[in-house]
Structures are given as structure tokens and as C-alpha cells.
Computed example of a mutant assay.
Amino acid sequence: MDWNHWFELIRPFIGGEQVDWKQVLLTGMAPIFVLAFAVEYQYLKKHGRLQRFSWAAVRANVGLAVVYQLAEGAVHLLISGAIILWIYQHRLFDVPVNAWTIVPIFVAVEFCYYWFHRGSHRIRWFWSAHVVHHSEERMNFSTALRQSAIYSITGWWLFFMPLVWLGVPPGVVFFLYACDLAYQFFIHTETVGKLPRWVEYVFDTPSNHRAHHGRNPQYIDKNYGGVLIVFDRWFGTYVEETEPVDYGIPHQIHSNNLWTLNMHEFLAMWRDVLRPGALGQRLKHLWAPPEWQRADGIQQAGRGERLAR
């Protein structure tokens, strides 16, 4: 196969700098996601494993996905798209995009995703959005749809701006990021056990990702990779799935209300900021880890465990 010829065929589909290719690709994948979920459901039903399956949770996950898509598109159109394009206009280089560079660029996107995901667990500002995804108490393909409407507001896209500033076209960065996210849909499942050891060593797999979603103490804040798991191994954040996973966050939300799921931790964070106390301690709630407690003794819930009142 002539890889350069193949790449030239798809270049027009990822070349638009002002198009949010992440949302375009994920929306286009929707029929495949629905089909995969239907197959998974029938498999679980056939094997008598629907005990923890909840249609109410599935409906909430789909609702969250729709609101997420609309919010992402609106913020991109009104705010982030212009900022991203401005950064690209002030790029340092022109990084060539061809059949030889597309894989290294994808690995670089995956590297940025690792730090975005790690930051989303260890910085409360970003956790206030990401907690939505982890509030699910079950694991099936619909769990992958459980996304936050405030991701763009908290600034997930900032983690990918180094690549844009270096000179990778934004359309390419976000198309490849969408490929990363599309892959991750298929690792949100309990229907696939452990894969061959070399696969588990290199890639994020259903087993590795189940551990990531666990609230078991040994699983919390581990396995941040999207497609690859090697960065977790290199940076000390890898854990193997060794015991049944208890999904969710330490104190479960127990809600399918879209407003509560999207906003409970974001509002709780700001309530903590506004509580009386030293200004430095109050502001630290924005960037400290979710479980951080004030030195002045004024407590906060942390890690998204408090219900919105």
C-alpha cells in the first residue's frame, strides 16, 4: 500500500483548522457506538449478567453525552476555537503531516492526553468536570458516553496547545484526539477479560481501564492512558486489575439528574472557595488535589463526594 497516497486521500477531512473535528468524528461514530452497546447488552443478557445493569443510568449517560456534545460545540464556536486558531497563527514551526509523521504525532497527542487525564484527577478545577465520568457505578459501553458539559469551560483543550504552538495543525490534533476517544469507548466493558500480556503491557485495555474506574483504594488515580498504557508504567501510575472493581467515587452521588451530575462538584468547589478563611487557603481549592483539606481546619468534601444542595 502506498501510505502517502492513502494519507493524501484523508488529508482534506482533517485539514480544516476551524472545524471541531473531535465532535465531528465522535458524532459520526454514534451508530457504531449504538450497535456495539446493543451487542454488549445481548451478550450480558444471554449470560445472565444483567444484575447491575440499569436503564436509568444508561438514559442518564446518553443525556450527558448529548449535553456534552452541544456544550463542546458552543464553546468551540464562541471561545476556544478562536483561541486555538490564534495560538496556531503564532506557531513556532510548520510540522509536516504525512504518512511518516502521523504516528509520532498521535503518540504526542496521547502524551498530552495522559497529562490532561492525570491533571483531571489531581487538580480539583479539572476534576470538577471529570468527576462526572467517574460517578457511574457500573461499567458498560454506555459509561463511555458519561461526559461533562463543563469540560471546555474548565479547559481540557489547554493540555493540547503545546502541539498546536509547535506547529501541528489543530484539525490534525483534534482529529487524532477523537480517534483516541473513540478507541476508549470500546474499553468501557466487563465483557472482555485480560488480553495477552504484551497487549496489556502496551495498550489501555478493558482490564486496565476497569481498574482506572475503581474506587478501591489501590485503584484510585491510576491508569490514565487513553490508547497506550506505557506512560503510566514510565511515570509510576500503573496498576494491574487484581480484584473485583468497585466502580464510582468514594461517596457515590446516587443520582441520574443531569444538572446534579454535571454541576455538583463544580458548585461544591466554589462553595469551598467562598467559605471564610485565609485567601490563599480558599483559592487553593481550585488547584489542590480534590482530597486536599484546609490547614485552617475548615473542611471540604473533596473528590466530588458532596451532593449539590
Score class of each variant (00 low, 15 high):
residue 25 L to N: 12
residue 33 F to N: 11
residue 34 V to R: 11
residue 36 A to S: 11
residue 39 V to Y: 11
residue 48 G to R: 12
residue 57 A to R: 14
residue 73 G to M: 12
residue 74 A to E: 06
residue 78 L to S: 09
residue 85 L to V: 08
residue 88 Y to E: 01
residue 89 Q to M: 02
residue 90 H to I: 07
residue 97 V to P: 07
residue 98 N to C: 07
residue 102 I to Y: 01
residue 105 I to N: 01
residue 105 I to R: 01
residue 107 V to Y: 05
residue 109 V to D: 03
residue 113 Y to A: 02
residue 118 R to C: 05
residue 119 G to D: 04
residue 123 I to S: 01
residue 124 R to S: 08
residue 136 E to W: 04
residue 136 E to F: 13
residue 136 E to C: 09
residue 139 M to C: 02
residue 153 I to T: 04
residue 154 T to S: 05
residue 155 G to Y: 00
residue 156 W to G: 01
residue 167 G to Y: 06
residue 168 V to E: 00
residue 170 P to M: 00
residue 174 F to R: 15
residue 179 C to S: 07
residue 180 D to P: 00
residue 188 H to E: 07
residue 199 V to N: 10
residue 202 V to G: 05
residue 203 F to H: 07
residue 204 D to E: 13
residue 205 T to D: 00
residue 213 H to F: 06
residue 216 N to M: 02
residue 225 G to H: 14
residue 228 L to E: 03
residue 229 I to C: 04
residue 230 V to K: 08
residue 234 W to S: 06
residue 236 G to M: 05
residue 239 V to G: 00
residue 246 D to Y: 04
residue 250 P to F: 09
residue 253 I to W: 10
residue 254 H to Q: 14
residue 254 H to K: 15
residue 257 N to V: 10
residue 258 L to F: 10
residue 258 L to C: 08
residue 259 W to V: 14
residue 262 N to F: 01
residue 270 W to C: 09
residue 279 L to W: 11
residue 282 R to H: 03
residue 285 H to I: 09
residue 290 P to F: 06
residue 298 I to Q: 14
residue 306 R to N: 13
residue 309 R to H: 11
